[in-house]
Simulated scan of single mutants.
Amino acid sequence: MKIVPLVGLLILLTALVTSCKTYKNLEKVKPKIESTSMAEQLQKLKPGDRIKVYEKSGSVRNLTYIHTESGILRAIDTKKSKEQISIRVDDIAQVQVRKTDVGSTAISTGLAITIGALAFVFGLLIYLGSQSS
């Protein structure tokens, strides 16, 4: 029965650590550029980046970026076919890239440390209480 709280703590810590990544608009990704041209924004991407592409047609795709050339974005569809696809840059309304969110990471880490310390103290008190009986 003593293992149940530890398993719960492990699950909580895992959930907190995996919440450190979020999708950000390319305009917010450094280096920030003044231009709003989609082609210039796509230059910030690196091969292997996980991106979310919002097309002007209304569809949304989760992709792994390969490269952009001649006005065509090439990527791998990570949700459906796992095949390479091509999207014209002119057909893209918005692109978000998955990056580490420093704020979420700091909050999650602080919360995890606090919960871990409280669980340790609580467990120690229970253990000491059971020894004195």
Rank of each mutant, 00 (worst) to 15 (best):
V60H: 08
V60F: 03
V60R: 11
V60Q: 02
V60K: 05
R61G: 08
R61V: 05
N62Y: 15
N62V: 08
N62H: 09
N62R: 10
L63K: 00
L63H: 04
T64H: 10
T64V: 09
T64C: 11
Y65L: 08
Y65V: 08
I66S: 07
H67E: 14
H67R: 15
H67T: 10
H67W: 08
S70P: 07
S70E: 15
G71M: 10
G71K: 07
I72G: 06
L73E: 02
L73H: 02
L73W: 00
L73N: 02
R74M: 12
R74S: 11
A75Q: 03
D77W: 01
T78Y: 12
K79Q: 13
K79A: 09
K79P: 01
K79E: 09
K80W: 12
K80L: 14
K80F: 11
S81N: 12
K82Q: 11
K82T: 14
K82A: 11
K82G: 14
E83G: 10
Q84Y: 07
I85Y: 06
S86L: 08
S86N: 13
S86K: 05
I87Y: 02
I87H: 01
I87K: 00
R88Q: 06
D90T: 12
D90S: 07
D91M: 10
D91L: 04
I92C: 09
I92P: 00
A93Y: 11
A93H: 08
Q94K: 10
Q94G: 02
Q94M: 14
Q94D: 02
V97P: 03
V97C: 06
V97R: 00
R98M: 15
R98F: 07
K99F: 00
K99L: 12
K99W: 06
D101K: 12
D101C: 08
V102R: 13
V102F: 13
V102T: 13
G103W: 09
S104N: 08
I107W: 05
I107S: 07
S108M: 05
S108Q: 06
I113G: 03
T114V: 09
I115W: 00
I115N: 00
G116N: 04
A117P: 04
A117V: 14
A117F: 07
A117H: 06
L118Q: 03
V121Q: 11
V121H: 10
V121L: 14
V121D: 10
F122D: 10
F122T: 14
